[in-house]
Design a protein around this nucleic acid. Structure first.
Lengths: 197, 197
DNA sequence: CCTACCGATCGGTAGG
DNA sequence: CCTACCGATCGGTAGG
């Protein structure tokens, strides 16, 4: 059963909003936030400029929504992975979860990484808070594996590896995201030549 | 026969050009290429819009110059490191060289990583060719250390770690770039928990 | 009366 | 090397 809505909305409301965010993410990832106009986004989403302003009060809010919704999914995934079990299992679960979310969200992820400075201060603060939580969880997991004092640097190097994948990893290629995730975990644990030493 | 004397080049020519590139790199890194106008760059460089067009025919050419000059330095550093000696020594030399170049060129590096799609096709081809050379050298060095078949993926994960540093590493902080480079090398070689050695 | 949505156009500013 | 401009396009809003 459907709860009573406070305000009537088009039955396609969520679908249209999502279509706008998908189109915006693709354009912002390709040309940059300032390089894609509201009209461009409207065109790519198959709607009109006026409709966009019905869903988002300003251009910044589209960018904020793209980042925030993607980041919420990543934070939720990190929280789940944290309670998996042993330290190694936690890291494996975290990395696989991240890689699975990146696939199919490569545009959103690139936008998240590159366009932080184009947010308003309030929106930036919100996004940074979510990022901090994701980093804190990752740091806690890595602190159980490597030197505790190095957990921050290790977390940053770890994020470097997985955040960079959007530039070269092809989800349509032969390698599954889970396989790539396991390679990252193995590298974090044992390095390139575990057999020799 | 000579209607116009060739305009003598200012003795400050190179210095002014460099000042423009420094200002442009900072603005493009902060706001994105499309978010910073020619007038913004001129202002930040302490010159005029007209002067900018005296040094660069179009806005794209400033972007191209920022990327190409930074990348040339990286390729030269990679070539030098390649002949250092043993595989481990090569990787160490390469990583230290990269990290040293990133310090003081963080704006240029961010621009290189983010703004490739805003180049003209010809300029992009030029930049991509330089990048390919840098990747090939790195891949060759890593092929001597890990599994040869995995050299490409290992090179991408390696670039992820060092390319991401511009977002969190503070050159003015207590950690020297060389120390960070050695941590990356150690991670590549032995992972987080090097019990053996 | 409400909301959803469109075609047209606002005052300013972009690269050149 | 500046001011004056241009064709076009910007983010955002008007009336219906």
């Amino acid at each position: 059963m459907v709860a009573h809505m406070a305000r009537p909305q088009s039955p396609d409301y969520d679908k249209r909003r999502e279509a706008i965010l998908v189109a915006a993410a693709r354009l912002y990832a390709k040309r940059g936030f300032s390089g894609a106009s509201i009209a461009d986004v409207a065109n790519a989403a198959g709607t009109s400029k006026s409709l966009i302003y019905h869903y988002f009060p300003a251009k910044d809010d589209i960018l904020h929504a793209v980042m925030a919704e993607h980041l919420d999914a990543l934070v939720a995934a990190a929280r789940e992975a944290q309670g998996t079990g042993a330290p190694d299992a936690n890291l494996r679960a975290l990395t696989i979860a991240f890689m699975r979310h990146y696939v199919g969200a490569q545009d959103r992820h690139k936008v998240l990484l590159n366009e932080l400075d184009n947010l308003t201060p309030a929106a930036r603060q919100d996004v940074v808070a979510k990022q901090r939580e994701m980093i804190a969880i990752t740091e806690a997991i890595l602190a159980e594996i490597g030197q505790r004092a190095d957990a921050r640097v290790n977390a940053m190097l770890f994020f470097g590896m997985i955040n960079w994948t959007h530039t070269w990893f092809d989800p349509a290629g032969p390698v599954m995201p889970e396989m790539l995730a396991l390679r990252v975990v193995e590298l974090m644990q044992k390095g390139l030549s575990p057999q020799a030493s």
